[in-house]
Computed example of a mutant assay.
Amino acid sequence: PAFVEAVARALHTSLACARWDVSSVLTALAEAAGGELTDRLLGRLPRGYALLFGRADLAVAA
């Protein structure tokens, strides 16, 4: 949420618009980068970012 809020402030837009913009860009980036690189990137980010990359945010099974 903090990342999307920062983008909304920087773009002087609503949270919904910022979330849409961020998700559009990161989903395109993930498609260009490929699955393996995107998986590695998401492994380094906190939980919750997968949705912004057009991926399901799945919890690891215990």
Score class of each variant (00 low, 15 high):
Ala8Asp: 01
Leu51Glu: 12
Asp21Val: 14
Ala62Phe: 06
Arg9Trp: 11
Gly43Gln: 01
Ala62Tyr: 10
Val7Ser: 08
Tyr49Arg: 02
Ala56Ser: 14
Ala50Cys: 10
Ala10Glu: 14
Ala18Asn: 01
Leu37Thr: 07
Gly48Leu: 02
His12Leu: 08
Ala16Tyr: 00
Ala16Trp: 00
Val4Thr: 07
Arg55Met: 05
Pro46Leu: 07
Gly54His: 03
Arg55Val: 01
Ala18Leu: 02
Leu45Tyr: 12
Asp21Gln: 14
Ala32Val: 10
Thr13Asp: 10
Ala61Cys: 11
Leu41Asn: 00
Thr13Asn: 07
Ala18Arg: 00
Ala33Phe: 15
Cys17Tyr: 09
His12Ile: 09
Asp57Trp: 09
Ser23Pro: 06
Trp20Tyr: 13
Leu29Gly: 09
Tyr49Gly: 02
Arg47Phe: 05
Thr27Ala: 13
Ser24Asn: 14
Ala50Gly: 10
Ala2Met: 11
Leu58Cys: 09
Ala30Glu: 04
Arg55Lys: 06
Leu52Phe: 08
Leu51His: 02
Leu15Asn: 15
Cys17Gly: 06
Leu45Lys: 09
Ser14Ala: 00
Ala32Phe: 06
Trp20Cys: 09
Asp39Trp: 01
Phe53Leu: 07
Arg40Cys: 01
Val60Arg: 15
Arg19Phe: 03
Arg55Pro: 05
Trp20His: 11
Ala2Glu: 14
Thr27Asp: 03
Ala30Trp: 01
Arg19Pro: 01
Val60Lys: 08
Ala50Lys: 03
Asp21Pro: 03
Pro46Phe: 02
Arg9Leu: 15
Ala10Ser: 15
Ala2Val: 11
Pro46Lys: 05
Arg9Val: 12
Gly48Glu: 13
Pro1Trp: 03
Glu31Phe: 11
Ala33Arg: 13
Arg44Leu: 13
Gly34Cys: 02
Arg47Asn: 04
Ala33Trp: 15
Phe53Arg: 06
Gly48Ala: 12
Ala62Leu: 12
Val25Cys: 08
Leu58Glu: 15
Leu51Val: 10
Leu41Phe: 11
Leu52Ser: 01
Ala59Gly: 09
Leu58Arg: 15
Leu29Asp: 06
Arg47Trp: 03
Ala10Val: 01
Ala2Lys: 11
Ser23Gly: 11
Val4Ser: 04
Val25Arg: 13
Ala61Trp: 11
Trp20Asn: 04
Trp20Ile: 07
Gly34Ser: 06
Gly43Ala: 06
Leu26Asp: 03
Gly34Val: 10
Val4Pro: 00
Asp21Phe: 15
Trp20Pro: 00
Leu58Gln: 14
Arg40Ser: 04
Ala62Asn: 11
Ala28Tyr: 00
Arg47Glu: 11
Ala33Ser: 15
Leu11His: 05
Ala33Thr: 12
Gly34Asp: 07
Val25Gln: 13
Ala50Met: 09
Gly54Lys: 02
Val4Leu: 00
Asp39Gln: 05
Ala10Pro: 02
Ala10Trp: 06
Thr38Trp: 08
Glu5Asp: 12
Ala28Ile: 00
Arg40Met: 10
Gly43Lys: 07
Glu36Leu: 11
Ala33Ile: 08
Arg9Cys: 10
Ala6His: 14
Tyr49Trp: 08
Leu52Ile: 04
Leu11Asp: 03
His12Ser: 12
Leu37Cys: 02
Leu51Gly: 12
Ser24Gly: 13
Trp20Lys: 10
Leu45Trp: 15
Ser14Cys: 01
Cys17Leu: 10
Gly34Asn: 08
Gly34Ile: 09
Leu41Met: 08
Ala16Gly: 04
Leu11Glu: 13
Ala28Asn: 05
